[in-house]
Amino acid sequence: MAERATRPRDAALGSGPGRALLAVYLVFAVSAGARAGVQIATKFDEAPVAYLLSALAAAVYLAASFGLATGGRTGRRIALAGCLVELAGVLVVGTLTVTDAAAFPDDTVWSHFGSGYGYIPVVLPLIGLYWLWRNRPGTD
């Protein structure tokens, strides 16, 4: 409660760019989750790893969204972890789908560095990390 008293509500998101960042994370959480849900429900046996990775991506986007929206020390840590896991995931999965395409019979959200989503999955964590760094406590 004391933390709220010393920090305005908008410090977690800012007025414009922070809210846009949150909106993009929420859209990606919903779209990746919907994609994974349909794939898991209808054709899980075809490419279980790919579909579970899409579900993981949705969970990571949701966690980052929650952290950005919550703010404060805990929210920042959750958002930071989400952005770092997302960046690692998109780089590892993106590299594997380029170098060993046979290992992924169907695309994930992070395949080919997010090419199916306009490469936003590879850029979004960088923007999120920059936002968290730029808006860290004590940088007024």
Score class of each variant (00 low, 15 high):
residue 70 T to W: 10
residue 67 G to I: 00
residue 47 A to G: 08
residue 69 A to R: 12
residue 107 D to K: 13
residue 61 Y to R: 08
residue 103 A to I: 02
residue 66 F to V: 07
residue 130 Y to T: 06
residue 80 L to R: 11
residue 62 L to A: 15
residue 105 P to W: 03
residue 45 D to E: 11
residue 99 T to A: 14
residue 54 S to P: 00
residue 107 D to N: 13
residue 111 S to M: 11
residue 50 A to Q: 10
residue 69 A to I: 04
residue 42 T to K: 10
residue 71 G to S: 07
residue 56 L to C: 07
residue 97 T to N: 15
residue 93 V to C: 06
residue 47 A to N: 05
residue 106 D to I: 01
residue 65 S to W: 06
residue 73 R to P: 06
residue 64 A to S: 15
residue 101 A to S: 15
residue 59 A to D: 08
residue 75 G to M: 06
residue 99 T to L: 15
residue 120 I to Y: 10
residue 60 V to E: 11
residue 128 G to A: 06
residue 51 Y to N: 06
residue 114 G to K: 09
residue 40 I to V: 12
residue 51 Y to K: 04
residue 56 L to E: 10
residue 105 P to Y: 04
residue 101 A to I: 07
residue 70 T to I: 00
residue 119 Y to A: 08
residue 87 L to E: 06
residue 95 T to Q: 13
residue 46 E to I: 01
residue 40 I to T: 10
residue 77 R to A: 10
residue 53 L to W: 12
residue 80 L to M: 12
residue 65 S to N: 09
residue 59 A to N: 08
residue 73 R to M: 05
residue 120 I to Q: 12
residue 39 Q to V: 02
residue 134 R to A: 14
residue 37 G to R: 01
residue 75 G to I: 03
residue 85 V to I: 15
residue 51 Y to P: 11
residue 129 L to D: 01
residue 121 P to W: 00
residue 122 V to W: 14
residue 37 G to C: 01
residue 110 W to N: 05
residue 129 L to I: 06
residue 103 A to W: 15
residue 82 G to C: 09
residue 129 L to C: 03
residue 99 T to S: 15
residue 96 L to H: 09
residue 58 A to Q: 05
residue 43 K to I: 06
residue 49 V to K: 12
residue 85 V to C: 11
residue 98 V to H: 15
residue 80 L to G: 08
residue 53 L to Y: 11
residue 74 T to L: 14
residue 42 T to N: 12
residue 100 D to V: 02
residue 81 A to D: 09
residue 44 F to G: 05
residue 42 T to W: 13
residue 65 S to A: 14
residue 59 A to E: 07
residue 66 F to M: 01
residue 94 G to R: 12
residue 76 R to P: 09
residue 83 C to A: 13
residue 116 G to L: 03
residue 112 H to I: 02
residue 90 V to D: 10
residue 46 E to A: 03
residue 35 R to V: 00
residue 94 G to C: 08
residue 125 P to N: 08
residue 70 T to G: 00
residue 131 W to G: 04
residue 109 V to G: 11
residue 116 G to E: 10
residue 80 L to E: 11
residue 96 L to S: 05
residue 103 A to R: 14
residue 127 I to S: 00
residue 118 G to V: 04
residue 45 D to C: 01
residue 46 E to V: 05
residue 53 L to H: 08
residue 117 Y to S: 09
residue 73 R to T: 07
residue 126 L to R: 03
residue 86 E to M: 13
residue 44 F to A: 05
residue 87 L to C: 05
residue 38 V to N: 09
residue 46 E to R: 04
